[in-house]
Design a protein around this nucleic acid. Structure first.
Length: 693
DNA sequence: GTAGTCTGTCATTAT
DNA sequence: AAATAATGACAGACT
């Protein structure tokens, strides 16, 4: 606290931010302390005062001991941990003994402390960028150059990172000392020269083994001096401070392969002149001049956390403590060295002394921390997204008894599961993924001020599957792994976008939503839907014809012609529309034709049945008539014989019916005539018969 | 595998 | 003459 008081008295400020992150249903509260440096306090002065810089030394030692890293493990950058580092418990005690105002409990905290307290902003950015580029299997996004590449206006990100220090570091062989001498405020003094010489002598790879023990002893001595008398810190060999820089590098490179999440935060909070904090108006809060220089160039700056971190990151509390200074933008005096925020990330517990349950005697290394180290040993965690989410969730869940990191990892491994980041992670999740730092960059360069909305729209456009060009989103160097970062960005962005803002056409076209269904099932459904579409419908969809097939086929010819003339349609579209209309009408006509044909057939069949029935009826009637006729004939025959048998000829004999027949005349008289006479004698016999009758 | 049915489409003719 | 309807013929999918 002594350092903090000095810091405070020097005009520094303390920015306390409490972040609430909702990740896959898991809530993570982060208390973030940003120690804002006083305007006149330069980095080297801080180093000499034994402030955060000296504490960073211990932190470096701690990291080198494998406290939060993996002892002996080669960082992607190829650097090895210091094998001579003291035990982690001892190192932690040293850290605490140094009076570090904020006790790191996680690797992320350690990274913040080391990177911010001991180095300038440029250095920190460079280190961050280098580590980011090398970490996560190339998934990192170089945060460094946030004030350089970004200011370049978003050209080639690789070209924009020319000013970054990580590029230089990458060119150096593993183990080669990074002779980064503070260059701000005329600090390149003779002492620095001596320091550099000592540093090179100590840190050079060829001599490193020989000097290792001596360096370690000197470190211990310096540490003891710090503990004994803080005023003697200034007498501490300068090369140790420089060594701190180197160790800081190693800390970052070796111990924190998942520190990317805070890199963006760091950049966001410390280096972006145009940044804005959503919900935190720095312009409304008095800040030291240096802070205003470091963070903002105008009186009103809003760090847009929604862009930088996540939509789910609710900045529900932001308290800026500052003694007397007011925020004044001064772009001219803004230097990278004026940006030395001191950050601490705690897992919801604001009390640094309050340790996690189950912590050991040091109060730092809990089983959860050990488990975290085990997790970081997995290659899987080199992935940025998984890394940061795991990191945060593990930190947050470390206090819970039923905490199961594997389950947490599975949450993010599950492709269909929502990581909890809202879609607006488009403006967000910078703290989570490096790719999102693009927004920070935009905000830093001032693009975000006026184009924030447009950028927002671009991101929203990605909701529909059209991802904006990476160059539009990120004007920042993504280092060698920029492509991977883009992919990561798209992945996350897509997921969240999809979850939060389903595209309207899809939502309206689909009969139901897909809240719990997987993308695979959904895509299968869409494929089936497309498969169910007719050929013309698919063609119309392919040519983006703004009419439905039903409309094209069903509308009257006048409306159809007016439609073709009213809309600007290509020849191909017009041809397809006409073909669709022709085929559609022909299809209907064919259907009607077949239906009509079928109806005709059915009617003919009915007619056949009816005619057959009528035929049968007529047959029956005919039979009945014939039968009646026969009956009448029989009766007539009987009557004839009866009449003839009663007739007598002239001699009085019975008339033979076979030889005579009866004939009726016109006047109604009946004649008996012989049959042989036939018709010739018909009249004569009739008259004779009359006479006879 | 085959036959029958359904459907869409094309070509042609009729309206 | 153009648009449409009607219809025979054909082919593919399906039963």
């Amino acid at each position: 606290m002594k350092h903090l008081k000095r810091w405070w008295s020097a005009g520094g400020g303390l920015l306390h931010l409490t972040l609430l992150l909702s990740l896959a249903g898991l809530r993570v509260d982060l208390d973030l302390y940003l120690l804002l440096p006083p305007p006149t306090l330069l980095r080297d002065e801080l180093l000499l005062q034994g402030g955060p810089a000296s504490s960073a030394y211990a932190l470096n030692r701690f990291s080198a001991s494998g406290g939060w890293g993996r002892a002996g493990q080669l960082h992607p950058k190829g650097r090895e941990l210091d094998p001579a580092a003291p035990p982690e418990g001892q190192l932690l005690r040293e850290v605490r003994a140094l009076g570090v105002p904020f006790i790191p409990r996680t690797r992320v905290d350690a990274w913040l402390v080391h990177s911010v307290a001991a180095g300038s902003a440029d250095e920190a950015h460079g280190l961050l960028g280098a580590a980011a580029a090398s970490s996560a299997g190339g998934a990192g996004t170089s945060v460094d150059g946030g004030s350089q590449a970004v200011q370049g206006g978003g050209g080639d990100p690789r070209a924009a990172r020319s000013g970054s220090l990580d590029a230089e570091e990458e060119e150096k062989a593993p183990g080669e000392p990074t002779a980064q001498v503070p260059d701000a405020g005329g600090c390149a003094s003779e002492e620095n020269e001596v320091l550099r010489e000592k540093h090179e002598a100590v840190g050079h790879s060829s001599q490193r083994e020989e000097n290792e023990e001596r360096v370690s002893a000197q470190k211990e001595n310096s540490l003891q001096q710090n503990n004994e008398d803080e005023n003697k810190v200034a007498e501490k060999p300068d090369w140790e401070a420089e060594k701190n820089t180197e160790s800081r590098n190693e800390l970052h490179l070796n111990g924190t392969d998942t520190s990317f999440s805070l890199e963006d935060l760091f950049q966001l909070l410390s280096s972006q002149p145009e940044n804005s904090l959503e919900g935190v108006s720095l312009g409304d809060i008095p800040l030291p001049g240096s802070i205003s220089d470091g963070m903002n160039s105008s009186a009103h700056h809003h760090v847009n956390f929604s862009q930088a971190i996540s939509q789910d990151v609710n900045l529900h509390e932001a308290i800026l403590l500052c003694p007397n200074n007011t925020l004044r933008g001064n772009p001219v005096t803004r230097t990278s060295h004026s940006q030395e925020p001191f950050l601490q990330l705690n897992s919801h517990t604001t009390n640094p002394e309050q340790t996690l349950p189950g912590t050991n005697s040091t109060g730092f290394l809990s089983p959860v921390d050990n488990h975290m180290r085990n997790l970081t040993s997995q290659d899987l965690l080199y992935d940025l997204d998984v890394n940061i989410f795991d990191e945060i969730n593990l930190m947050s869940l470390g206090t819970e008894d039923d905490f199961d990191p594997i389950d947490v990892s599975q949450l993010f491994d599950e492709p269909d599961s929502d990581s909890g980041l809202s879609l607006d992670s488009s403006h967000n999740s910078t703290s989570v993924t490096k790719s999102n730092s693009s927004h920070v960059c935009e905000g830093a360069t001032g693009y975000c001020t006026d184009h924030e909305s447009s950028s927002h729209h671009d991101l929203e456009g990605a909701v529909g599957g059209d991802y904006p060009e990476p160059s539009k989103l990120c004007h920042m160097d993504h280092s060698d792994s920029g492509f991977h970062g883009d992919l990561t960005f798209q992945h996350i962005f897509h997921n969240h976008t999809y979850h939060l803002q389903p595209s309207a056409p899809e939502s309206t076209s689909e009969p139901f939503s897909w809240p719990g269904r997987s993308q695979k099932i959904r895509s299968r459904y869409l494929e089936d839907t497309d498969r169910n579409l007719s050929r013309d419908e698919r063609r119309a969809k392919a040519l983006h014809i703004p009419f439905s097939v039903d409309e094209i086929v069903g509308m009257p010819v006048d409306s159809f012609n007016s439609m073709l003339s009213r809309y600007y349609l290509t020849d191909l579209q017009v041809s397809l529309i006409r073909d669709i209309r022709r085929r559609g009408k022909n299809k209907v006509a064919a259907q009607n034709c077949r239906k009509r044909k079928l109806d005709i057939i059915l009617n003919l069949e009915n007619d056949v049945c009816n005619l057959q029935a009528k035929k049968e009826t007529l047959k029956r009637q005919r039979a009945q008539c014939n039968k009646a006729i026969n009956i009448m004939k029989q009766k007539l025959h009987d009557l004839y014989h009866d009449v003839v048998s009663r007739l007598r000829d002239d001699e009085g004999r019975p008339v033979n019916p076979n030889h005579y027949a009866l004939q009726c005349t016109h006047d109604g008289s009946v004649l008996l005539v012989p049959k042989e006479l036939g018709a010739s004698g018909h009249k004569k016999e009739t008259q004779k018969g009359k006479r006879n009758l």
